[in-house]
């Protein structure tokens, strides 16, 4: 049974060209076309230049790319800024207030890729501000590791964390993470072992799972089909597909 009319928000997309492949999502139009082909209503996306280039946009690195703190390039595409919360002018943006003023409800951080510490004094100040203002933080588990996410969640219980890209072999660690802190949600796109999404939903509740794929770096079509054919109650599937993301984004998902 495939739920063809399910309303879906993909919380983990990349917009723009990538260094190692020719992708159809290198433009806003291409991303929209890709979403439409898969029947996905909307997405949250990071700008590829922030992921693969200098996330600060200095010295022309933003040239041609989407401005991550501006309003989304299309009502179906919300940009997720990648922040670099480091001191002495090395980070971006200069202060968390800039993010707050932009209206962003979800930020991404790549502390390993961008070489900074998730629990530094400066970063901690950022996470306090995010927690206070209801801004969620997305982290890629293959980049930062499960322990770092658990540690951050333990130190900042009010901070909503979206744990991206756990991988199909990590149900045990996902269970540990979800058991660790109620503020953590896990992305489903790579939970691809047999019945893994249903198992996690049964053990921890569908409200702890959020649909995202990591496309085009990771496959979008398979996880989307899996989402539509989950052996779960309708309400649970709707939470994973849309409701939990909408809650994080405060109803701003299209």
């Amino acid at each position: 049974m495939e739920r063809t009319n399910l309303r879906i928000h993909d919380i983990n997309r990349v917009l723009g060209p990538v260094p190692h492949d020719d992708v159809p999502t290198d433009t806003v139009e291409g991303l929209l076309s890709d979403l439409t082909a898969l029947g996905v209503a909307s997405c949250s996306a990071v700008a590829s230049w922030q992921l693969f280039g200098d996330p600060s946009g200095r010295a022309g690195s933003l040239e041609g790319g989407a401005e991550p703190l501006a309003a989304g390039p299309h009502p179906r595409v919300r940009l997720t800024p990648i922040v670099v919360p480091t001191p002495a002018g090395t980070g971006w943006p200069a202060d968390p207030s800039v993010v707050l003023q932009s209206g962003a409800r979800l930020v991404r951080a790549c502390p390993v890729r961008h070489r900074w510490s998730l629990l530094s004094r400066t970063a901690s100040r950022w996470w306090d501000a995010c927690a206070e203002h209801g801004i969620a933080l997305a982290l890629d588990l293959t980049e930062v590791g499960f322990a770092a996410v658990a540690g951050l969640a333990a130190s900042r219980p009010g901070l909503n964390i979206v744990a991206l890209n756990p991988g199909y072999r990590e149900l045990r660690r996902c269970a540990e993470l979800l058991d660790e802190a109620p503020s953590i949600l896990v992305e489903t796109g790579t939970i691809l072992t047999t019945g893994g999404v249903e198992w996690l939903a049964g053990a921890f509740g569908a409200e702890r799972l959020v649909f995202g794929t990591g496309g085009p770096l990771l496959d979008e079509a398979g996880p989307t089909f899996l989402l539509r054919s989950l052996d779960l109650p309708e309400n649970d599937v709707e939470l994973i597909a849309w409701g939990n993301a909408a809650r994080l984004l405060e109803g701003q998902a299209q």
Binding site: L192, G222, L226
Partner: peptide, 17 residues
């Protein structure tokens, strides 16, 4: 690759190719 993988994602990938 079921049961390493759920059989559904690979089918979805094929159907959407």
């Amino acid at each position: 690759d079921a049961c390493f993988f759920d059989p559904r994602p690979a089918l979805g990938r094929l159907l959407a190719a």
